[in-house]
């Protein structure tokens, strides 16, 4: 049986969670202040996921970049691949918070969505 310590990253409480597990099952989880912590640790052991936040280039916008996030957490190992994908994308202003910029990015079932309003550039 293995024991591992995690810092839960779900919220700023940063619970330190201790988990005892063997290859096929989790035996004991302690230290978490809420259920989300338990969920997080389970995922972290089986298939770690992360939300990704970054920026995408904007054409004719009041700013040269729009901030974006994945609509849901994606497998951790996909982060860099998605970054590569995003680096070649450019979107036209105006953009609204929640606009889908890339649908189902690299078949992760997550969309890349805007997290900022960007107006058209005033000439």
């Amino acid at each position: 049986m293995l024991t591992k310590r995690y810092v839960c990253i779900i919220c700023p409480n940063s619970c330190e969670i201790e988990v005892e597990y063997s290859e096929d099952k989790i035996n004991r989880i302690s230290g978490n202040m809420c259920e989300k912590g338990e969920e997080y640790v389970k995922k972290e052991i089986l298939c770690p996921e992360r939300g990704l936040t970054t920026t995408i280039k904007v054409k004719n916008g009041s700013l040269p970049l729009v901030s974006v996030k994945t609509s849901k957490a994606i497998p951790k190992e996909m982060m860099m691949k998605i970054m590569d994908e995003i680096s070649n994308v450019e979107v036209e202003a105006p953009i609204k918070i929640g606009n889908v910029i890339i649908k189902n990015v690299l078949n992760t079932e997550a969309d890349i969505i805007a997290t900022k309003n960007i107006n058209k550039k005033v000439k």
């Binding site: 919220c11 700023p12 939300g51 936040t53 970054t54 901030s67 996030k69 918070i97 900022k116 309003n117």
Partner: peptide, 25 residues
């Protein structure tokens, strides 16, 4: 918050995990 594009905002107030620009908006 305009430049804090990462998540972690709003958990206490909105019970949601927002990015800085979303929280601010």
């Amino acid at each position: 918050l305009n430049q804090c594009i990462h998540e972690g905002f709003g958990v206490e107030i909105f019970k949601e995990n927002l990015t800085g620009p979303e929280y601010m908006q």
